[in-house]
């Protein structure tokens, strides 16, 4: 089982992968409609929105939390070096 390089989600079935393509390293939530992986800023914005919607965090606290989580993921290594 692979872990999405962009958000850390475990990918178990084809449906979890971007475009259902199990050769990809990222999940459906980290893909753009054309199947390419979202950029750092797109993912940061998406993750922030997700934290606000699912846990009700303060907007700025959610941005900080999103960045802290992204810092640990292989897809964004270059953004923190």
């Amino acid at each position: 089982m692979k872990i999405c390089i962009a958000c850390g989600m475990p990918m178990k079935d084809a449906a979890d992968y971007a475009m259902g393509d199990m050769t990809k390293e990222y999940c459906r939530f980290c893909a753009r409609p054309d199947g390419t992986m979202q950029s750092f800023s797109e993912k940061k914005m998406g993750l922030t929105r997700f934290l606000v919607e699912t846990q009700g965090f303060d907007e700025e606290a959610a941005v900080q939390a999103a960045v802290a989580m992204m810092r640990k993921l292989p897809a964004w290594e270059a953004n923190f070096s």
């Binding site: 850390g8 989600m9 997700f50 934290l51 699912t54 846990q55 939390a65 802290a68 989580m69 810092r71 640990k72």
Partner: peptide, 13 residues
């Protein structure tokens, strides 16, 4: 702390 938050966020998801 980031991993703990990621775990809680996965639960929330």
């Amino acid at each position: 702390a980031a991993d703990w938050l990621a775990m809680q966020s996965e639960t929330a998801f």
